Each structure stands twice: as structure tokens, then as C-alpha cells.
Amino acid sequence: MKDLGSQIAYWDGVGATKTFTHPVQLSWLTGVDPDARVLDYGCGYGRVMAELSEHGFRDVSGVDLSPALIERGRQLRPDLRLTVLESPPDLIDASESFDVVLLFAVLTCIPDADAQRALVDELNRVLAPGGLLYISDMVLQDDERNYSRYAAYARQFGTPYGVFATDDGAVCRHHDVAELHALLSDFDLVDERGIEVATMNGHRSQAVQLLARKR
């Protein structure tokens, strides 16, 4: 599944028209200095960046692998610092360059476990000691529609349970929360909460948010 680590054709096509909805729990960032160096990895069109900027954060940047999404963000908010990620998951930034990294609905778009691990390792590299990693992502759903597509995709492609294809061509992954905890084995978990979100295709689904601190 390593070729599914980016799915650039999808994100530069129909994916560039989607609306993203995972909410920011601003109370989790109450103690963060307004001058903290914040990175939104997989920023899309800058929705979360704009919200953080509007709440007083002054050093917010974002990267995304999709030139189409970045261009959409630049049209919507020319004031935001949006950059195309050339070689995901690698960042050009030096180690310990950021105090906070946000990863909103990104792991769901990376079905391969090794690619997910490589991404989290890269974010660990660029986070300063004591820095925060704020993840929002999709969990396994308990309805028949999702049971069926998880099982069908696993039978056809031998993928982990929870991987599936959307009707418009994206391959996504829903997670057991334990899988997300395992990805954060080099961090200390600060907080966790379950939420309900509207997916990019308009379904109500369960998700989880995790706040972790780099050791």
C-alpha cells in the first residue's frame, strides 16, 4: 500500500473541492504562547490555520502535498503561510523547529502503517522537546455500511481492517484507538476526547482527538 501514502491525483482533483470539519479544541492550547511556532501538517486550504490566527497565534505555517489545495487556501486567505510539501513526509525544516504540530484528518488519508509511522517520526523530529502534537482522526465505525466495506477491502487487497475506498476514489483508513496510541509511543498523552464529525463526503462519523507531548 505504499503507493497510497499520498494519493496526490485524488487530492489535486475532487479532493481539492472538499470541506474539512474536524473542530479545534482551543482550550487544549490555552497555555501555549501566542508566539509559539505552530505547524499545520496536511493543512488543506488553511481552515485550521485561519482559526488559530484569528485566536491570536502569530507564527502559524502550513504544508500540504496538494498544490490545488494550497492554491485554494492562498485564494481564500492570502495572509496565511501555505507551502506545498514536495517530498512527504519529509519537511525542509530543521529539527526542533516547532512548538506545536497539528495533524487533522491526515492519518485517515494514509492507509499504510509504515507511512504513518514515518510521518509521526518526522513530526517528532521537528518538534521541540516538550512540544505538542495535536491529532484529530477517524476511528472504526460500528455501523453495517462500514463493517461491509472494511471487510470487503481487506479480503480484496489484504489491507488492515478499517481500510476502505470512498465512492469518489480515495482510499482511507479508520483506526482502532489503540493503533493511534501506538503511533504516539514516543510521546506522553496529555488528553483525549471522542467527537462526532461530518466526513468530507457528508456522513456523520465518530472520531477522536489526542493531545500528546514530546518527551
Rank of each mutant, 00 (worst) to 15 (best):
Q25L: 00
D186F: 11
G15L: 09
L85G: 01
T166D: 07
L39Y: 05
L52E: 12
A170S: 14
R47F: 13
Q7V: 05
V190C: 09
E86C: 02
T19W: 08
S27C: 04
R173E: 02
I70P: 02
D167L: 08
E144A: 15
M49I: 00
A151W: 07
G158D: 14
D90V: 09
M200P: 01
G44N: 05
G131F: 11
F187G: 00
G202L: 15
L119R: 04
V14R: 11
L210E: 06
S66V: 00
L29D: 02
R37C: 08
A207I: 05
D12T: 01
V163S: 03
D137L: 05
I70M: 03
M49W: 08
F104G: 06
I195H: 02
D112C: 05
D137W: 05
A9I: 13
A152N: 12
V120Q: 04
V84E: 06
P67C: 13
R149K: 15
T199I: 12
K2C: 06
G31E: 13
Y150I: 08
G62C: 08
F104H: 07
K2P: 00
T166M: 04
D112H: 01
S205G: 08
S87G: 13
N201A: 04
P23G: 06
Q75S: 11
H174Y: 14
M49N: 09
Q75P: 01
T108G: 14
H55T: 14
Y161P: 02
Y153G: 02
D176Y: 15
N146V: 15
T108H: 15
L76G: 11
F98R: 07
V24T: 02
V63D: 05
G131Y: 12
D12S: 07
L107T: 00
T30P: 00
L180G: 12
L189D: 10
V101N: 11
V106M: 04
D64P: 05
I195W: 07
A36V: 10
A16P: 01
S205N: 11
E192L: 11
E51W: 12
P129C: 07
L127P: 04
V177I: 11
G5D: 05
A118L: 01
E122C: 12
V171W: 03
K2N: 07
P34N: 03
N146R: 15
L65H: 09
L133A: 01
D142A: 14
W11M: 02
R37F: 01
Y161V: 04
V177Y: 06
D79Q: 15
G62W: 06
L91N: 06
E144W: 13
L210M: 11
A198V: 04
R74S: 10
R193N: 12
V208N: 13
V120T: 04
L76R: 12
V100L: 15
Q156C: 12
A115V: 07
L82H: 08
L184G: 14
D168C: 10
V139A: 13
P23I: 07
L29C: 08
R125M: 06
H174F: 10
Y45H: 10
A165T: 00
L107C: 03
I92V: 05
V38N: 04
A105P: 09
Q206H: 12
P129G: 07
G5R: 04
